[in-house]
Design a protein around this nucleic acid. Sequence first.
DNA 1: CATAGACCTGAATCGGTCT
DNA 2: GAGACCGATTCAGGTCTAT
Lengths: 384, 384
Amino acid sequence: MVTAVKTRTRALRAKVATATLANGVQAPALPVNRILKGDCIDMMRSLPTGSIDMIFADPPYNLQLGGDLARPDGSHVDAVTDHWDKFDSFAVYDRFTREWLSEAYRLLKPNGSIWVIGSYHNIFRLGTMLQDMGFWILNDIIWRKTNPMPNFKGTRFTNAHETLIWAAKSEKAKYTFNYRAMKTLNDELQMRSDWVLPICSGKERLKRNGTKAHPTQKPESLLYRVILATTNKGDVVLDPFFGTGTTGAVAKRLGRNWIGCEREDDYIEVAQERIDLALPLDESALKTMQSKRAAPKVPFGSLVESGWLTPGTVLADKKRRWQAVVRADGSLAVGEDTGSIHGMGSKVQNAASCNGWTFWHFMDKGEMKPIDVLRQRYLLAVED
Amino acid sequence: MVTAVKTRTRALRAKVATATLANGVQAPALPVNRILKGDCIDMMRSLPTGSIDMIFADPPYNLQLGGDLARPDGSHVDAVTDHWDKFDSFAVYDRFTREWLSEAYRLLKPNGSIWVIGSYHNIFRLGTMLQDMGFWILNDIIWRKTNPMPNFKGTRFTNAHETLIWAAKSEKAKYTFNYRAMKTLNDELQMRSDWVLPICSGKERLKRNGTKAHPTQKPESLLYRVILATTNKGDVVLDPFFGTGTTGAVAKRLGRNWIGCEREDDYIEVAQERIDLALPLDESALKTMQSKRAAPKVPFGSLVESGWLTPGTVLADKKRRWQAVVRADGSLAVGEDTGSIHGMGSKVQNAASCNGWTFWHFMDKGEMKPIDVLRQRYLLAVED
DNA sequence: CATAGACCTGAATCGGTCT
DNA sequence: GAGACCGATTCAGGTCTAT
């Protein structure tokens, strides 16, 4: 039962978006591109079997925190103490986990896959249950945070990562993995199981009345990589713990359909607003590399992934003789041609080689600047 | 029942090593610095309850490999297909895991801790079982491999890490963590939960007749960090899955006692040879990293008492917003108020707490310096 | 206006001891 | 076992303020 009340405008917009995104393909009989208000297990029960291509789930971590924690300077640490993260025991947490995972299993198409994210408090229980239910684990992925919270007391190792598990419905399933796009995104090296990404902060962090809207908002760069790697355009992505809607916002940007389940009105409101503002990328930007030609010498893809450059952005050489469009996997398109920033640079100039970093420029405060500037900024921001 | 047969020479050497390592402390009534030959569960049952300080366990990974794997060029991949890594099902693996973990729990001292290492095939089951048995997880650690095996088929993310779990026997246990040593090792930054280390290869990789002696030999750097972080000199480290004895070799180098369980004669032979060659570090090398916390505590009054600060000296915070006068008994006076350096620090700031050592400053050669500087000088002077 | 520095804060199973 | 009270403790990035 879908209880989310949408305005007529929103429903229309969602429908239009679906038709556009699915791009000719029959739209599924699903409440796509909408937030379903209510308990996630109830909401999932309302959806048809075998209708979902990918599930991304960021369930409560079952943190077992003691008392208050104060920093050395006396300031208060705003830990996660929300009621939705309270479970009396492992048994209760396990029961809850089994329930929503059973629904997830039912909803996934035979070749669909699921992602879950967690910390050491809950990830082992999630992984064990996935295996026990017949899911086939494909990878465990480590999100290495560039800027984690330090360990104030100096009593343990700084908890500087979170773990994601990616699993298919069965050992034999033909799951989606965009190997080529991942390789392009990673400097023409295979994408590894450890991902270095900053936590969500600054402008990206959603605020309400000056304080953070949600205690555990995930960075868009994380979802970008997840969705780009394991879904195709037009696929339906379900997020049972929608929160502030990072999954929906990135899915929309990447031309995927999405469904979110969320209980709290505050989160729904923030999420809907955010997704309404997200702009889908245009067709050419979304095409990912199919050929093996491109060989970028630097991880240009990282700039795209982490939002320093938006897919669809038009780059040009300094004198604006040629233009190129940035695509989702970090490749460039010049007309029908696609390739790396270096390859396309040399191609348009009919030159043997070209350093794409200095050749291609972008507009910054009304000025043309080489994309190398962005690389420098990125390095400064991300470097360990 | 200890079934390992040692030569007289080896037994003697082991005994001498124990006496030297324990350094005056009564040697435990344990077969320390020896390899116990036999099934690890049987061997563990032969040891006394509460006798072990730390356990490092690298159990079989329960890899679920189908047929043979060949590289793109047709060459054969030497995967882990040894008979000891075959389990009929998760249930069998779980039963095995529960058995040896129960023994581990029994053997550990109340404040001892355990490390387990695994991949996504088994680590979730290990973690869940640790939690279910009452172990208290302290950290999960990611060993990020600088040179992992690539994913030849391009069907998944390159599996570039393994996961370790560090756990104490209970929530309230006073486990050992050499915070200072870890911080020193990490360029004066807190050691994080992600460790970047190369896999074991080159000269370090033990060979027998030209092929690797063990399929999953761990690098010594990994054990070095584990043992240095969570044991003290003279502690007893148990490794139930000893293999080629990396744990023993590093324990010996670091002045720790060790016990290894191993079934296979081939591994025992290689391991014993290797450990015999390992040289323990000398006293001074081992002493370098002393914990700040373990350093003798200095009451502020001692500085006054011994003349490092004269009663009547005026202290101030860094921005000189507040001033305080040192009194003869080691208390501070701010106006009519008096109290400890910490109490007065929090009082003037209206904060819950305050570290007076870093808050209050004194004038030294025309410069404001925290009184912690005086504490350091005092410690240096007293230590000699 | 640019730069330097102060201040704030992020999924955290984060103390010890005595009453 | 709960609670009071004392004491010791932090890294990186974003934002704001003072110079």
